[in-house]
Simulated scan of single mutants.
Amino acid sequence: MEFSDVFDFSDYDRLIPLVTNSLWAGVLLALVGGLVGVFVMNRELSFAVHGISELSFAGAAIFLLFGFDVVFGSVIGSMIAALILSLLGDKSKDRNSIVAVLMPFGLGIGILALALYPGRAANKFGLLTGQIVAVDDPKLASLTVISAVVLTLLVIMWRPLLFATLDAEVAAARGVNTKALGIVFVLVLGLAVAAAVQVVGALLVLALLVTPAAAALRLSKSQLWVPVLSVSFALVAMLGGILLALGGGLPISPYVTTISFLIYLIARLIAFVKSKGVKEKAVVRA
């Protein structure tokens, strides 16, 4: 197999305008995913992201089956999952068990709805793997509204949420309502997942909401640089994935996940080299 069989950039100048909306959606999702991902990692909610995405997929698939707005269905599914997790999963152990129950249920209901859907196969599997040209003007408008709500809530709650995340007991002692913040954040996470599912698909949403932040935390502990790096990594993965998918003619998700994974590997390598250098200096000083 030759390179040209996998990638064909001969008509790239004419194809770029076809994904303008996807590129803008990628920017929005990278901004949302990068910022939300910082709290997802620090609050140990990585597994919850996957559980919410399964119900988001189920909601989108059911709405697709009955001819309703897919984005709205995705939001409904995410909000149901977020409410269940926030109200019943106070402890990490309880939350993990609830997610383990939600995941197969959501996936099963979603697959059933897709099996009954009589439309094009691309619409079916796009909910699982993402679609590069599926972001039309109405969907971009919906994603913009969802992203604006998520970012506004994050700006309002950033400092108390960060305080509650890093030291919940001290935050509670100083009057921060950590329980209410936790519930609101899980709902914000649900909105972020619902937005991401529309582009990267339900199965691979972790590549946007977890991997960039995980890579950023390997490189820094700064409260400023971690979100900056996380958003930057998410932007590279999203925009790079879209542009590569355009030339490759394949779903966007394999490219986004591969770029995210490579960024994470590089971040781990840099962190390893830095830690090794610090240890060597300590040995020399000793």
Score class of each variant (00 low, 15 high):
170 V>Y: 15
185 F>N: 11
133 V>T: 15
24 W>L: 14
195 A>T: 13
126 G>L: 01
75 V>D: 11
68 F>S: 09
85 L>H: 07
257 T>P: 02
228 V>K: 06
274 K>W: 10
61 A>L: 05
186 V>I: 15
72 F>L: 14
32 V>T: 08
36 V>W: 01
162 L>I: 08
258 T>L: 06
140 L>H: 03
166 L>Y: 10
116 L>G: 07
105 F>Q: 01
129 T>D: 09
229 L>D: 06
111 I>L: 06
169 E>C: 04
57 F>V: 00
44 E>V: 12
256 V>H: 00
270 I>E: 06
200 V>M: 09
65 L>A: 09
118 P>K: 11
225 W>M: 13
225 W>D: 13
157 M>T: 15
180 A>E: 12
40 V>H: 06
190 G>A: 11
201 G>N: 03
202 A>G: 02
7 F>Y: 01
105 F>A: 13
57 F>E: 01
210 V>G: 02
228 V>C: 07
264 Y>L: 15
282 A>K: 08
247 G>R: 03
174 R>C: 14
147 S>Q: 07
286 A>H: 11
182 G>H: 13
35 L>P: 03
91 K>V: 09
157 M>C: 15
97 S>I: 14
74 S>C: 04
92 S>Q: 12
58 A>N: 04
232 S>Q: 08
88 L>Q: 11
66 F>Y: 14
156 I>N: 12
107 L>V: 03
165 T>E: 08
182 G>D: 12
185 F>W: 09
133 V>Q: 15
247 G>I: 00
61 A>F: 03
75 V>I: 08
105 F>M: 04
216 A>F: 08
32 V>G: 02
227 P>Y: 09
262 L>T: 03
10 S>P: 04
6 V>I: 10
75 V>K: 10
119 G>Y: 07
34 G>F: 02
139 K>C: 07
97 S>F: 12
78 S>Y: 06
98 I>F: 00
243 L>S: 11
186 V>R: 11
210 V>D: 07
104 P>S: 01
240 G>K: 12
213 A>H: 09
37 G>K: 06
49 V>P: 03
4 S>V: 08
106 G>A: 01
27 V>F: 07
231 V>Y: 05
255 Y>L: 00
243 L>W: 13
110 G>D: 00
160 P>T: 10
106 G>D: 02
197 V>C: 04
193 V>A: 13
91 K>F: 02
158 W>E: 12
272 F>H: 13
72 F>M: 12
243 L>C: 07
232 S>G: 12
199 V>P: 04
104 P>I: 00
182 G>T: 05
167 D>S: 05
57 F>D: 02
186 V>G: 13
119 G>I: 05
58 A>L: 00
204 L>D: 06
266 I>S: 15
22 S>Q: 11
199 V>Q: 09
267 A>E: 08
231 V>R: 04
257 T>I: 06
152 T>H: 11
171 A>Y: 09
180 A>W: 13
119 G>S: 07
212 P>W: 14
236 V>H: 03
8 D>C: 00
94 D>I: 02
128 L>P: 02
176 V>F: 10
96 N>C: 00
184 V>K: 14
63 F>A: 08
67 G>M: 05
265 L>Y: 09
102 L>A: 04
249 G>V: 00
57 F>P: 02
101 V>G: 07
196 A>R: 05
156 I>K: 11
107 L>S: 00
